[in-house]
Design a protein around this nucleic acid. Structure first.
Lengths: 221, 221
DNA sequence: ACTGCTGTGTAGCTTTTGGTACAGACCGCC
DNA sequence: GGCGGTCTGTACCAAAAGCTACACAGCAGT
């Protein structure tokens, strides 16, 4: 992998100095066609990850088999889950899954550690990445305990919908994201449809009244 | 505050090099008698915190007023909540409260940033602290979605009980910790008493059968 | 002893969420 | 067209958790 081909990638140009340095040194590109599992709990980490295109989903699986998304890692973000394990010699405690068409740059552990020692810009990138992750996790934890499922579902629809107000996601996946079951999602969506907030189709949900959803989320009860 | 008096403090001797360097440079000790709020959401951070004695509790408050503990910071740990805001110029999104008898060392923001640039040992301390926090938050998030309240309460009792199997904590505080209400805690504890797992007293809960509680937690249902 | 405060015990009801079960719709493929 | 798989719709019941209301117990101060 040369730096020129890396630089030809879309988001690369907007990256910080630290991120570019990371990628120029020993990064190996990994492409995913279909959604694919990358890490399982207990697996040791072979390096630091950097999302070039697509998205990674980090999630937990309960003993009864239900999933729940912990957080996402979007393009241009250093993949912090690796850093934890790289520095603390801990096993990673969650599953990681790449969405379809995701490209990930893998920086070998020793290379990353060496760069982290020498380069202030890479320290900066690292701390920012961890810091952002902490915020994201705190937000998620707060959301889980402060909001009811209908509000969290409304939020999911608003946040993840395309500009055209469409969300291409099955109810099964929404349920997995929220840590609940498909039936519950279907019931809540039925209510949204009755209120005229959304329309449903196979594998897609269209938002018809974003304000209505927003008001639902804001309602304190 | 001189380094000699800092070193006289109990946990100080076991600290890492980075932590000691942090404390020798411009740390201001802050003592708390009774439990006291330290930070409120939106408050900007004046420096990095380091817990010398006692414990900090970081928690969220839902619109309806119920609290939920996000994580604790124990003695000898760099207080990472500050680092987020120090590096990202973000406001801190949660409340922080010091338990009774807590001593916190406050390192001014500029001093910390300067040390972070120069000292590898301080970079190390910082990354470890953030990393640990990420793990703690992930664990908590997983627990919230994978376990029921009775299991989480049993876990709370086991984790926070003294060596003698006593937990000096009112049910109100347990409820705030778990993000629920006192009545629910009372109901669950009643069940524990009926099973012979615990005994209750005013402001204290005594564990009589730790194995029973442990089995309850392990039960997949 | 009286009072007030804080903490616990309990009952009953409502809401929310989860679990089971099944019917039907859409889609691609042979 | 027929078939199998995936996705959605829905009805019903069960469990979990929250809400309200109130009684009482321990403790401190006057």
């Amino acid at each position: 992998m040369t730096s020129s081909s890396l630089e030809s990638l879309g988001p690369f140009r907007q990256l910080s100095e630290g991120s570019r340095k990371l990628l120029r040194r020993g990064a190996v590109l990994v492409q995913c066609g279909p959604p694919a599992p990358i890490l399982q709990p207990g697996q040791s980490i072979s390096g630091a990850y950097f999302v070039v295109r697509g998205r990674l989903r980090v999630y937990a699986i309960a003993p009864d088999g239900t999933e729940a998304t912990l957080y996402f890692i979007s393009p241009g973000e250093t993949c912090v889950f690796a850093l934890n394990s790289l520095f603390n010699d801990l096993r990673y405690p969650a599953w990681v899954q790449a969405e379809a068409g995701t490209t990930v740059a893998l920086i070998p552990g020793p290379v990353f550690r060496e760069l982290f020692q020498k380069e202030p810009s890479i320290q900066d990138v690292t701390v920012r990445a961890l810091s952002t992750l902490v915020f994201r996790l705190m937000e998620e934890l707060e959301e889980v305990h402060a909001y009811k499922l209908d509000q969290r579902l409304a939020n999911l629809l608003l946040i993840h919908a395309s500009a055209a107000g469409e969300l291409a996601m099955t109810q099964q996946r929404m349920a997995a994201h929220l840590g609940t079951t498909r039936e519950v999602v279907a019931r809540l969506i039925r209510e949204f449809v009755a209120q005229g907030y959304v329309e449903t189709g196979r594998g897609v949900t269209r938002i018809k009244n974003a304000d209505g959803l927003a008001r639902l989320i804001a309602a304190s009860a």
